[in-house]
Amino acid sequence: MIMLDHVTMRYPTVTALDDVSFRVREGEFVFIVGSSGSGKTTLIKLLLQEIKPTVGEIVVDGMEYSRMKKNEIPMLRRKIGVVFQNFRLLKDRTVFENVAFAQQVIEKTQKEIRRQVPATLTMVGLADKYKQYPRELSGGEQQRVALARAIVNEPKIILADEPTGNLDPKKSLESMRLLEEINRRGTTVLVVTHDREIVNLMQKRVIVLKKGRLISDMEKGGYLDED
């Protein structure tokens, strides 16, 4: 589903990723962990084609990034549902409108939006909050709206960037359980985090980055002490 082949990303003053290679199979749940400056953000930007690698190849669902035309980038991004750090919800829109936004953007009809959005909100447990604005919601609820927006288009991959960053441990675990549930339905899940507790608790595959290099890749791994 996802393949990085000797990917290096150099900026003028720093090498953010250095010869990183790994594969993620369809339906896997993978944590990508590392401290600040480890290259996590660069990896997300590369996967979303916001930037191009200096060296190496990335393939997602059969789409080779090096051969991809500009007009194919939106199609690639539609395969990846993103849960952004700090949620990035639209403050002037209700919960329903925030989730519907993801469908409008890919030109779904109003009929499809009316069918799909309530179903997704029910799945994340926010069916009764659809009229509320983000400011009226708790951190955990905002995070679930962000998750609903990421999954409403039924992407093949969910990419969650620090999804527990602003949540207390209980809400973080709830959020992870929700991602696990989405993963059980067949969606590949990539969680980029430095939340040690959650990583250790979930017992999933863990890829560890340090100063741009991949230093560990373990099935049912944990957060290494030296990280």
Binding site: E50, N71, R78, G81, V82, F84, L90, A102, V105, E107
Partner: peptide, 16 residues
């Protein structure tokens, strides 16, 4: 700006 950035990242086409 923020809305546009999100739109692009979730798969909006240039024309949209």
């Amino acid at each position: 700006k923020e809305e546009i950035a999100i739109m692009k990242l979730i798969g909006a086409t240039d024309l949209f």
